[in-house]
Design a protein around this nucleic acid. Sequence first.
DNA 1: CGCTTTTGACCCGCGC
DNA 2: GCGCGGGTCAAAAGCG
Length: 277
Amino acid sequence: MESHSLSLDLTIGFAKQSILQEPSPPPCLREELKRVTEENMKLTSMLATMCESYDALRAQLIDMIGPNAAVASSEGARSSSPPSAKRKSAESAGDAANSVSSTNSCKKAKEEGSKPKIWKLYARTDPSDSSLVVRDGYQWRKYGQKVTRDNPCPRAYFRCSFAPTCPVKKKVQRSADDQCLLVATYEGEHNHNQSSAAEVENAVSRKTAGTADGFGAAGAPKTKDGRGEREEARKPELRERLVKDMASSLTKDPNFTAVIAAAISGRFFGISTAQEM
DNA sequence: CGCTTTTGACCCGCGC
DNA sequence: GCGCGGGTCAAAAGCG
């Protein structure tokens, strides 16, 4: 959401810029230009309002569920909560869309403190895309796949391959209810820095090129100890370029623009939509 | 050649 | 104790 708003904002900015750079448009276009500019201004302020609301809601959510819960993913993250319920029923990906479920057993929950953090991340994907890949900025190595009883879709098991000693694991499975929804369950904490911005950039460009795994384990450059080669590359210009890349890749996505348009029109113009955000 | 993915086998915990 | 099911291992295959 955050990045969606950001990219749309940027797009509006770029649009403004390109329109304003037109060399003295004919009078008939001036009115339209003025109208479009006003519309852009309006949209920008709407977005600012939406961002504020989002931040407020997010802060509330974090207050409610605690700092352990991760609210991430550019593709529509939801949340997690402290462990509850029995392991096998809680594991059901069927309740994923309703969020707030945990994977750990009661027993394990009691031992919490020494146990690794567990959280879930939900990502929307193209239903035709059969790969169980959730782009999260880390490098993962798949070590198993299993069809579980409560879900016909296979569950994939990944280890963090970014650093050899990293204890983090993740399980990825499609929701039984919504095949478009990937449920990634993370276990543990990374004992290294996240992939560098450069690698994120690689991921973005690879995604644009149509690669299935944006953070494919085979793709990123590595040093002997398995860390990213360009981990230090966090320069402002790189970030700026990264933001531009992300913005362009997002705005090229017709689904994204449709969702944003629906959201804006639904909220600000009273058009009711059944759009899921 | 080295690394990743695939996949069947095995291990282990849990419920009955 | 037994069976079931989830999680992991490891050999083979695939890929760049």
